[in-house]
């Protein structure tokens, strides 16, 4: 194995060795998939028809749409709870080294940039692994309760459907990944700045909340200074662009809301992707830069 391989391997061992954090913050997703499967199977075995309907199990010849189950996992990183968990996980990976006083062991052995980069790569791998696993467990697993309940798990697979599904799947997964990376970027930067797990979590979550509530102060500023178009600045934030891409994928039109629609067109998908990439690169770059300049004191 070469040097980079060793570094990644070490990072992976260290991160997954923190059983507790991995279990509750990232392993939670595949575990949740298994729990959902068990519950639905139980309901399929003994529940009333209403209960089955409520659990989304197609019974008596109805059709359960399997692409939904495969895609479900990838919607999670865009939900608040999913995002908070990812922030907490990133916080443990980055701020943990301060808390355990272990940066001093590492920083002497490697360049700081490669240490931070290894952390981001490891996090990405873990995140992709976790959601892929969840997606596969749910997607294939649901066949069991649905067939027990006597429903159909459809539609039947053919070439065009597969191509369409693959496209949607990759799009959804890519979006989820981008969303996760933005969250990780905030948390990592906050970890470097506050040097504490809790501080990193709070600031990471705070940044997202701030971003989502940004319309209010921008709107207020706009009215105060009689420049209502200021509110369109919101189209530069990651949250907006993530939602915008989702909206494009779902409805074929961009994301907007009053009073934003009065002043600006929704970003095009390409523009949104570029803006997101700039944010991700910017946050990671800023993390690297702050870490590079930092005194390691403990």
């Amino acid at each position: 194995m070469n040097a980079i391989g060793h570094l990644l391997c070490a990072e992976w061992q260290k991160t997954t060795g923190n059983r507790w954090a991995v279990g509750t913050l990232i392993g939670l997703f595949p575990i949740m998939a298994v729990v959902i499967l068990i519950l639905t199977t139980l309901v399929a075995l003994g529940g009333s028809p209403e209960a089955m309907a409520r659990m989304g199990i197609a019974s008596g010849g109805q059709v359960a749409y399997w692409p939904d189950y495969f895609l479900f996992a990838w919607a999670i990183p865009s939900t608040p709870i999913g995002r908070w968990l990812l922030i907490a996980f990133t916080a443990v990976a980055f701020a943990g080294e301060y808390q355990w006083g272990t940066w001093k062991n590492l920083a002497a052995r490697r360049t700081r940039a490669s240490l931070v980069a290894a952390k981001f790569v490891t996090l990405s791998l873990l995140i992709v692994a976790s959601f892929t696993l969840m997606s596969l467990i749910l997607g294939f697993g649901m066949l069991l309760p649905v067939s027990i309940a006597g429903g159909t798990y459809g539609p039947a697979l053919d070439g065009p459907l597969l191509a369409d599904f693959a496209g949607r799947y990759l799009g959804q997964a890519g979006l989820a990944f981008a969303s996760a990376l933005v969250a990780a970027g905030y948390a990592a930067l906050a970890a470097i700045v506050t040097r504490a797990i809790l501080g990193s979590v709070l600031i990471g979550i705070g940044a997202f909340l701030l971003e989502e509530g940004l319309a209010v102060p921008l709107g207020l500023l706009g009215t105060l200074f009689h420049r209502p178009e200021i509110v369109a600045l919101i189209q530069l934030t990651p949250s907006y662009n993530l939602q915008n891409l989702l909206a494009w994928a779902r409805t074929g039109g961009g994301h907007t809301f009053p009073p934003l629609d009065l002043y600006a067109q929704p970003n095009s998908p390409e523009l949104s992707i570029v803006i997101l990439l700039v944010w991700i690169a910017g946050l990671i770059g800023l993390t690297l830069y702050s870490f590079h300049r930092q005194d390691i004191l403990n």
Partner: peptide, 8 residues
């Protein structure tokens, strides 16, 4: 509610 419907 789920448990209720499961166990009748």
């Amino acid at each position: 509610a789920l448990l209720g419907s499961l166990f009748g």
